[in-house]
Write a protein that binds this DNA or RNA. Sequence first.
DNA 1: CTACAAGTTAAAGTTAACTTTAAGTCAACA
DNA 2: TGTTGACTTAAAGTTAACTTTAACTTGTAG
Lengths: 143, 143
Amino acid sequence: MIYTVGEIAKQMDIAPSTLRYYDKEGLLPFLERSSGGIRMFKDEDLGWLEIIECLKKTGMPIKEIKHFIDCGMAGDETINERLSIIQSQKNVVIAKMKEMQEMLDMLDFKDWYYTKAKEAGTCAFYNAMDPEDIPQPFRKYKD
Amino acid sequence: MIYTVGEIAKQMDIAPSTLRYYDKEGLLPFLERSSGGIRMFKDEDLGWLEIIECLKKTGMPIKEIKHFIDCGMAGDETINERLSIIQSQKNVVIAKMKEMQEMLDMLDFKDWYYTKAKEAGTCAFYNAMDPEDIPQPFRKYKD
DNA sequence: CTACAAGTTAAAGTTAACTTTAAGTCAACA
DNA sequence: TGTTGACTTAAAGTTAACTTTAACTTGTAG
């Protein structure tokens, strides 16, 4: 099957202008054109689009994604480089998830804090509280 | 204790210009100044700075952070609103973490794929492979 | 008292990743 | 064959979140 820019845009839930922008930035070197100049996406291109989305969603800049794709086009001599890009991006994601978890822990404290404040009708409940009664995991936070 | 903008910047590992920018955007309405106009951060301000960092790291735009802080300054009548901001931000973080995990799963596949390709010396190993030999969790991905 | 590092401001500059605009072309259907 | 919706391009515009610059002031150490 062959798809146009609009069809792929719908499938991937991004704007057609974004796909054209990616093409202009060199992210889609595998793309072929019809005789009239229309972009023709093939089924085998979808794998590339998915890894592009993956790298983009994990915060890799366009230029680095381009480098990864260029490696892919170059063939088997770049397997080592592609592997280390993937492994380093895995570490980026792991670090991000760890940070997100820490932020979520703080938001859990704030959720508890404002839920209690709502019950009490005032944030003043907190300083009036016996520190022992603050649930253990929340004791490290400032109000 | 009282701290200057530079001291706080170092403590929080952000640029002094960023703190001044936040102040200009109205994120630090609690900030007091010396008679000479120097910003004076107090220990009790650190809690605000931490929640600002938390909301920022979870992707909340500056203007929405300002709204949250403004609610805080307004006092106990805004407890409900602050609680729902926190709860909605928790949902944002949970969604982000879920997406990150999905991206990590795909990167795990790519790690496996390029590790195998490295062993084989070629990416062609993949199409030559019996689909049964692809580890179950990886079968949903395109190469 | 002087030097000087670090503070202050307003305004302009930067960067990434799109998005919009304008002018035009392609292709599928009636 | 004409209409129409989707495609094309280059270039300009947008947005958020800073960062830099330039000119000036503050406050501390010697």
